[in-house]
Computed example of a mutant assay.
Amino acid sequence: MEAMDLRVEKMLDGIGLKILAVLQENARMSLASIGQAVGLSSPAVAERVKKLEEAGIIKGYHARIDPEAMGRSVSAFIQLTTDARHYPAVKSLAADLPEITACHHVSGEASFIMQVRVAQVADLEPLVARFSPLGQTRTAIVLSTPVDKGARVPL
């Protein structure tokens, strides 16, 4: 395990972190452009990116879609407090519902916090009703999002 940590640590040197920062900003940037930004040739960048992918540090490349453009303008968080015996059912239901964009098992009073995207506030009621048999729910509707860093990881 120590050898793996050392290998990953070598990949995450200053240049590796710069490559990750550039890719987080724009994953469609050409290898030549990334090379210019970090001071490497295109083949060297390609090799580094390949190693970062193989190590599981880069998990994939995705389009970031505007939820409002897709008719999902209401964002909310559903907190669910439940018993451990219901955890598998909660995880399965959350995975099956397209309105649930993230489900976090958390410490504290609530057991789970789920991020939700729906078209209108009225769409929250049947969604919450799906979780109510599994425990106590509390829902918070997002009024605005002054900071949204997407899925970026602090480097």
Results as ranks from 00 to 15, higher is better:
M1G: 15
E2R: 14
E2L: 15
E2H: 14
A3F: 15
A3T: 15
M4P: 00
V8T: 07
E9K: 15
D13A: 15
D13G: 15
G14S: 15
I15Y: 14
I19F: 10
L20D: 01
A21N: 15
V22K: 14
N26G: 10
N26R: 15
A27L: 05
A27P: 09
R28W: 13
R28A: 15
I34Y: 07
G35D: 02
G35V: 02
G35I: 01
G35P: 02
Q36Y: 14
V38A: 09
V38P: 06
G39H: 11
G39S: 10
S41T: 12
S42N: 13
P43N: 09
A44Y: 07
E47Y: 11
R48V: 03
R48A: 13
V49S: 01
V49Y: 02
K50V: 04
E53T: 07
A55N: 00
A55Q: 02
I57A: 00
I58P: 01
I58S: 02
H62D: 08
H62P: 00
A63D: 11
I65D: 04
I65Y: 09
P67Q: 07
P67H: 07
E68N: 10
E68R: 12
A69F: 07
A69V: 05
R72V: 03
R72Q: 07
S75D: 09
S75A: 11
A76C: 05
A76R: 03
F77A: 11
I78D: 00
Q79I: 01
T81Y: 01
T81R: 14
A84R: 13
A84L: 14
Y87L: 08
A89H: 10
V90T: 04
K91M: 13
S92T: 07
L93A: 09
A94D: 01
D96G: 14
L97R: 03
P98K: 14
P98Q: 05
E99T: 00
A102C: 07
C103L: 10
C103H: 04
H105A: 13
H105V: 05
H105M: 13
F112P: 02
I113F: 08
A119M: 04
Q120W: 05
A122I: 05
A122E: 12
L124S: 06
L124M: 06
L127C: 04
V128E: 12
A129V: 03
R130K: 11
P133E: 10
P133Y: 13
P133H: 11
T137N: 04
T139K: 00
A140E: 06
I141L: 09
S144P: 01
P146G: 06
V147Q: 06
V147K: 12
K149R: 11
R152N: 08
V153Q: 01
V153W: 01
P154M: 10
L155N: 03
